[in-house]
Design a protein around this nucleic acid. Structure first.
Lengths: 229, 229
DNA sequence: TAGTGGTCTAGACCACCCC
DNA sequence: GGGTGGTCTAGACCACTAA
């Protein structure tokens, strides 16, 4: 069997680990490596490109390829549908709509979504349960100018998250993770006490520069978000 | 100019967005698409592979390519060196070692790192400041069986994070994000009050199945971690 | 301006896996 | 069994950019 791009990646990683190519070092060019490994340049190229994707190498035309001095490790999160996230743990998923109201955007939201005054916004509050336990409180705002048909949905049976993912594409998104002390209201919904540290995610999405939705997600006490490198 | 794999990706995304290929739909085979776009199959292949990487499509041999029913969006975090993270904001970075001690691993850590009883562990506590403000409290445990030369370093001038990234490669890593209520000690270091919700990251890394280090990072009040999709 | 990576091609063989 | 994607090749031209 010939040298595959997998093999090449492994070899390169080994050489880096063994300090044959220490951080900052320049690697030979693709043609030379192809000769060494006895394969086509395209094969070397693919291996190298993937190592760049993985944050191990840096490449610049003319300058060549070098080992990153501080390998930028990157963590990959998949953003799951909450129903699947819960169902996958074996628990039963339950969704409850708490409130649904069409209203003009409050000031802080106007700023965030860049919508004009009096522009109608659909505001939803919902709870997601895993079995008997509260899992997440969702506070969602949908820009009806961007998604007019959201107004036709009563969201009694399906969470807005799920509906949006299926119905409304987006071109850009932002995620912000933080920790907040639960307000009295949040604590009640999440079945915990005032001031409990709550893992919080804010999510905003845009479709071609037009803001689609902003959501604040409060997770139950002791929620952990896990990822592998 | 010929159709590039960038163009193909854009076209496919557009067709998905316009519901020409709705979620779950099967796409034509690579050969057919290559014919349609007037390019080589390899070009189509690359476009499709990248769309799989981005969580838009699913492919299976023989079955073909289809649009994911629930496109799994993925967020990419780069894990920066804390010094660079702070310096990049324009603030001055300051590092202080609080404690350094070699000790046997406590029980909870033995379980986590899978190390034997009485195996020596280097325990470090340090603070990272952004200008005058506390930025992060680092509680770090280094497995000296995996990294013996860590014992030679006094870590007075350089944080263990930075040292490890430069000196010790790893093959696997785990990140856990959560929110915790600050203990009295943590609150004091972070210049806040008891019980404040603190964004917390736990990080564990392994080198070829051998655990290297475990760290618990407590960020200052109101810290936000941001990422784009 | 010359060297390096970036991309494309036309063809080939193979591995997997649904039917 | 046969169709689909996975991968590789040998060669080509191009784009960027460091020297």
């Amino acid at each position: 069997m010939r040298t595959s791009y997998h093999d090449i990646k492994a070899i390169v990683l080994t050489r880096i680990r063994e300090n044959i190519w220490p951080p900052g070092a320049n690697l030979p060019g693709e043609i030379e490596l192809a000769k060494e490994f006895g394969c086509a340049r395209a094969t070397v190229n693919r291996a190298m490109r993937e190592l760049v994707d993985e944050g191990i190498l840096e490449r610049k035309r003319k300058a060549g390829t070098k080992v990153k001095s501080y390998p930028t490790r990157r963590a990959l999160f998949s953003i799951p549908i909450i129903r699947e996230e819960i169902t996958n743990t074996g628990a039963k998923y339950r969704y409850v709509l708490i409130e649904r109201k069409i209203m003009p955007a409050p000031g802080w939201l106007r700023a965030r979504l860049e919508v004009k005054k009096d522009q109608p916004i659909l505001h939803l509050q919902c709870m997601h349960y895993a079995g008997p336990n509260p899992y997440q409180l969702e506070d969602r705002w949908i820009n009806l100018a961007a998604v007019p048909n959201a107004a036709d949905n009563d969201f009694e049976d399906m969470g807005p998250n799920e509906w949006l993912v299926r119905e409304v594409p987006f071109t850009e998104g932002e995620l912000v993770f933080s920790a907040t002390n639960a307000s009295n209201e949040v604590a009640n919904f999440l079945n915990t006490s005032d001031g409990t540290a709550v893992f919080t995610v804010e999510r905003t999405t845009w479709l071609d520069k037009i803001s689609v939705t902003y959501a604040r997600l409060y997770f139950a006490r002791d929620h952990k978000m896990l990822t592998r490198l």
